[in-house]
């Protein structure tokens, strides 16, 4: 630092400026060759800066667009004024709050269903010995390979066109457009990963703790919820967060299995697209709606960032 400051003072003498800068470059080069660690740090900081800018720029742009006055099409890179009116407007033009609620409802319900059901299955796979364990596990693995498109058409027909499920029974009319039409397939779709994560975590709990709970007066099922799940909290959190985010960000079923209206349980997919199709030049509303819709998951990421990383480290990659 002090050397830098000295160089700066000297540079004021015009005659020596060229010479000085050459010397400075040489000094840096010499310093870096002697201390490659320093060079790596500088390069790292520079690269990191570039990477972060790339990540954040699109989000910043969203913000800049949201600031633009209604109807303005040529939006400058730096907003001329701070105008938050669009953030209010989105809730008045369309029932955006309801769209948000629907999405959060889907994500929460699927997460609760999946964690409950996958906990039972993960317990069985992780802690019990039974015939048929490997084939059943393998069927889960294979299932997670299939794209949603493969599952979609028969479900669409069963939900929307009264085609018999399993060739046995018909679902009640117009299940399409109710929450079930999204929750059911997304639960099935996100379950295999949750089972795998929970299985690895539950398997690591020492047998003694479960035995102790049972001797103390708990049933086997009770021990799962009172002892094994609380002790696997990082795993349960990881599986839960992954499921929640998958469902909240999901496009395919959310878009195709619902109607367009918020009152028909349409999620934010439709809410955001509603702005795009109905208010074609209100870019400020489109951007503001997008930003608002990011808030819940952004909070989740901020709160649970280290849980996600540690959960993945401890469990998910050990299979």
């Amino acid at each position: 630092m002090s050397i830098d400051a000295q160089d700066h003072d000297d540079a004021e003498t015009l005659d020596d400026q060229d010479e000085e800068s050459k010397n400075r470059v040489q000094a840096w080069a010499a310093d870096w060759i002697r201390n490659p660690q320093k060079a790596y740090t500088v390069m790292g900081v520079f690269l990191g800066g570039v990477l972060l800018t790339t990540t954040l720029f699109p989000l910043y742009w969203l913000f800049a667009v949201a600031m633009a006055p209604p109807g303005q099409t040529n939006i400058p890179l730096i907003p001329t004024r701070i105008d938050l009116y669009a953030f209010v407007d989105i809730f008045q033009q369309v029932p955006f709050a309801r769209f948000m609620f629907n999405s959060l409802f889907y994500a929460t319900t699927v997460t609760v269903v999946v964690i409950l059901v996958a906990s039972l299955a993960g317990y069985a796979f992780g802690r019990l010995d039974f015939r048929g364990k490997l084939p059943l596990l393998f069927s889960l693995l294979v299932l997670s390979w299939f794209p949603p498109a493969t599952l979609f058409l028969p479900l669409f027909r069963a939900f929307n066109q009264q085609v018999k499920m399993l060739g046995l029974f018909t679902l009640p009319t117009e299940i399409y457009g109710t929450p079930g039409a999204v929750i059911a397939p997304l639960s099935a779709f996100t379950m295999p990963l949750a089972v795998f994560i929970l299985m690895t975590f539950y398997a690591q709990i020492p047998d003694g703790l479960e035995d102790a709970a049972r001797v103390e007066g708990s049933s086997r099922i009770g021990a799962l919820f009172r002892v094994i799940m609380p002790l696997s909290a990082p795993g349960v959190a990881t599986a839960g967060i992954l499921t929640f985010i998958t469902v909240y960000t999901e496009f395919f079923f959310s878009f195709l299995m619902t109607g367009d209206k918020a009152s028909e349980w349409a999620p934010i997919v439709n809410g955001v697209l509603a702005f795009q199709s109905r208010y074609t030049v209100r870019y400020d509303l489109q951007a503001a709606a997008s930003l608002v819709a990011i808030v819940p998951v952004a909070i989740l990421v901020v709160l649970a960032q280290d849980k996600i990383v540690s959960g993945l480290t401890q469990g998910a990659l050990k299979e």
């Binding site: 299955a121 059943l136 599952l151 399993l166 059911a184 099935a188």
Partner: peptide
């Protein structure tokens, strides 16, 4: 242990059967 394990797996695999395995098979047939 065998019965208990299968009982615990039942809810999960029921969901998977209805909303994953059946649609897969059905798609294949269609």
């Amino acid at each position: 242990e065998q019965t208990y394990a299968l009982l615990l797996l039942a809810p999960g695999f029921l969901i998977l059967l209805l909303f994953a395995f059946w649609p897969l098979a059905s798609s294949f047939r269609m």
